[in-house]
Simulated assay, not measured.
Amino acid sequence: MRAQCQCGQLSAEVRVATDQIVACHCQACQRRTGAPFGLIAYYATADVTIAGQSVAYTRTADSGRTFTGHFCATCGTTLWFDADLKPDVIGIAVGAFADPTHPAPARSVWEDTMHEWVAIPGPIPHFPKGRS
């Protein structure tokens, strides 16, 4: 599967499927996406190949740990993520796959700041804050 930024300069090739897909409603993800939540699919670093030039922005997450978004220097699309919590994992923005058949989230986190009108369907775990 291939995810890419708007202009195509930055891409991620993923060699395996994942069931680690997270809908995050924290305010940082809302600001990062410009949408009511972020949706990220997580993969083992060894299963992802990144191509192109990216710029990184690191922030301290609500959990107190660092979270880094990597975005295209040309078009500004945030494509992939890493965090000190799981150093052997890369997150890919689900929308960057541009695949309407992409699997739904496996869990929903930071629902304390979820927009009232958002409903994540299915029998998945829902967390008021992070997963812990």
Rank of each mutant, 00 (worst) to 15 (best):
A12C: 08
A12P: 13
A17P: 14
A17N: 14
T18P: 04
T18I: 00
D19T: 13
Q20K: 15
Q20W: 14
Q27Y: 15
A28F: 15
R31V: 04
R32H: 14
G34K: 07
A35F: 14
P36I: 01
L39P: 05
L39Y: 00
L39F: 00
Y43D: 06
A44V: 09
A46Q: 11
V48Y: 07
T49Q: 02
T49N: 06
A51I: 02
G52H: 00
S54M: 05
T58W: 04
R59N: 02
T60V: 08
A61T: 06
A61H: 04
D62Y: 11
G64W: 03
G64C: 09
R65Y: 11
R65Q: 07
T66G: 02
T66C: 04
G69M: 01
H70G: 02
F71E: 06
L79A: 04
A83Q: 07
P87L: 01
V89F: 00
I90V: 11
I92L: 07
G95E: 09
A96S: 02
D99W: 13
T101S: 12
T101F: 11
H102G: 00
H102Q: 13
P103V: 03
S108K: 01
H115Y: 15
E116A: 13
A119D: 15
I120S: 04
I120T: 14
P121T: 13
P123E: 15
I124D: 07
P125N: 09
P125V: 05
H126I: 02
